[in-house]
Design a protein around this nucleic acid. Structure first.
Lengths: 350, 350
DNA sequence: ATGAAAGCGCTAACAA
DNA sequence: TTGTTAGCGCTTTCAT
């Protein structure tokens, strides 16, 4: 009750600055040793039921909270997993949300570090290393392999969505080619032959998607019809591709976008030009980000298995931690075509 | 050169586990004391040019990196600012990106903590406190005031975009009413009288926006025409509102959405129904998120001053740190109406 | 079940 | 300019 410090000239809601209580304070209050309090807070065996309760109660009264820095410093293993993400990427957000509970379950804390235009991924990674993360999970990293090779020497690194051959980086990603094939198969089954792919350039997974598209087209004897338009993983590029097809009068009967954001840009641009989806042109995205399932979008898309990607990222990191000698793993997940409202048979000619 | 440890049974890219070098190691290599190395790494005065170079070189050769945990523990002040964000909110992402350089400039590190469906904001905040953050910047927090009142007792807290009266929480936000007024003025100047507002419910700033809308309408003698539709800050709610207006045949000549995401949902839904923007209905958003300026969207919207919000958040936190006794501040920023392509004079009747 | 004591890697005050 | 020396708050043997 009451703050220990004097409360000068009231008025202001309250003057903070109550020195943060330590384990020692809790121990003193209960009349036990610091070590015992430590045991209680770590849920370690070796404290009576009674003691536990008393300690917890005292801690609560004091407003005690373990100091992570001290904890990390004293522990041989930090039990922290570093996660790098691009803050404005919704797919990354999905993954992060799924990673939290996954890590908690195995007793690890998560430290987030943002990669952004104002913050190079090297910096983001350095920060994580500085905090003694036991392993790193990098989401769709666009980091250069040479740098990663150095990092791998220090801690296990798991890359989600992008492969780094011969660097020692573990990988968790989707079988892109399989996803693309499902999409193309679906379109062909509907009767489409003129299917265009909007490329994702350097975006995670695009190289595989592009190759997968070409191969799938060949598989249907449509090698000649294959067309790849330049683009990237942004709405803008989808819209640009749409404008181009519109201007050139070369609109195909179906479009396979590099990812959902690109698909949505495309959808938006053609809709506003009076071209209907799927009436005039069918559209398939990739990722199944939350916005894709909105009732007014209903994007047919290829879903990546986010929960499993999250679980595997964490598990892969831990496995590597347990057995540092083993060869880097590559986990490949099966994507799933989600058919919604943007695909339909092509309009019959005349 | 080479790793200190033996490299058993090659094949695997490399076996990590080289014990992380400490300051002591660097000191030993150069032949100076640890304290001197510390001085160099803190950029503190008191080391010769020559020593600095030698130390830095040795550190580089060893791959030394300061240990944040030890650093934080030893320092009286951690020089860390905790930032909580909702990981899938693009507006939050913008702010975070702007906060990084701002913090760096004043010598502070940033620790991110995500609020998500899988992670309660209390937890996110606890984590930040556990890491000894000197102050907290909470972006659009939906945390309950009682909890924040407790937190404020321990560290300065800055809330961005949401006010917490009588809690001691500092606030940085936009003069929402002013932004809404600009939007309504613009619409009225174009000749609109039937202007509907889609509400943002509990979203940051919505209460002020709603009130501002009503007031602005009254100011134009349009109190009777004011209509507020239920909604929230998601695309889905914009689309739902659109469908409702479409179904009921009560489409106004202009719509003021609760935020950009809502506006985009609305835009999308009406476009697909063959209703043109701005030909049939004008539309104004709020926030000016990146997607709003895409060439195919060109959303007229109210821009919040993100760079200044970021700078002020950091500065406010620091000010409070310097003078813990002062009353909580409320920084109010002026919004700016960005007129783009979704607003035009209403269609002439008949 | 409980306590004593030695660090973890660094900072910072003080001496030299 | 450089080195010595206490801690920072916790974990973790090892005794008791």
């Amino acid at each position: 009750m009451g703050t220990p410090e004097s409360d000068p000239a009231g008025g202001t809601p309250r003057t903070r600055r109550a020195k943060r209580p330590t384990m020692e304070d809790v121990a003193a209050r209960v009349g036990v040793s610091r070590a015992l309090v430590s045991v209680v807070f770590r849920d370690a065996p070796g404290a009576s039921r009674e003691t536990r309760e008393k300690v917890l109660r005292a801690a609560d009264e004091l407003g005690y909270r373990p100091d992570s820095a001290a904890r990390v410093l004293a522990r041989s293993r930090s039990r922290i997993l570093g996660v790098m993400l691009t803050v404005r990427n919704p797919f990354h957000a999905d993954l992060v949300e799924a990673i939290y509970p996954e890590a908690e379950q195995v007793g690890y804390d998560i430290l987030l570090s943002a990669h952004a235009p104002t913050r190079h991924s090297h910096k983001a990674i350095e920060a994580l290393l500085g905090h003694r993360c036991e392993a790193l999970i990098l989401i769709g990293p666009e980091t250069d392999p040479a740098f990663l090779t150095e990092v791998v020497r220090q801690v296990p690194v798991v890359s989600v969505g992008r492969r780094f051959p011969d660097t020692g980086v573990e990988t968790v990603h989707t079988a892109e080619a399989k996803g693309v094939r499902q999409a193309v198969d679906h379109l062909v089954a509907l009767g489409h032959r003129d299917i265009v792919h909007i490329d994702g350039s350097r975006g995670a997974g695009s190289a595989e998607r592009r190759r997968g598209y070409r191969k799938a087209m060949r598989g249907h004897g449509l090698a000649e019809a294959a067309r790849v338009l330049p683009g990237d993983h942004t709405e803008e590029s989808g819209a640009a591709a749409a404008r181009r097809l519109l201007d050139e009068g070369t609109m195909p009967t179906a479009v396979l976008a590099g990812n959902d954001r690109c698909a949505i840009g495309f959808l938006d641009a053609v809709s506003r030009a009076g071209v209907h989806v799927p009436g005039d042109v069918s559209l398939v995205g990739y990722d199944d980000i939350p916005i894709a399932r909105l009732s007014h979008i209903e994007l047919t898309t290829v879903r990546q298995n986010v929960p499993r990607m999250a679980a595997l990222s964490v598990r892969t990191a831990l496995n590597r931690l347990e057995d540092p000698g083993r060869a880097p793993q590559e986990a490949v997940l099966t994507p799933e075509l989600i058919v919604r409202g943007t695909t339909a048979p092509p309009r019959t000619r005349d």
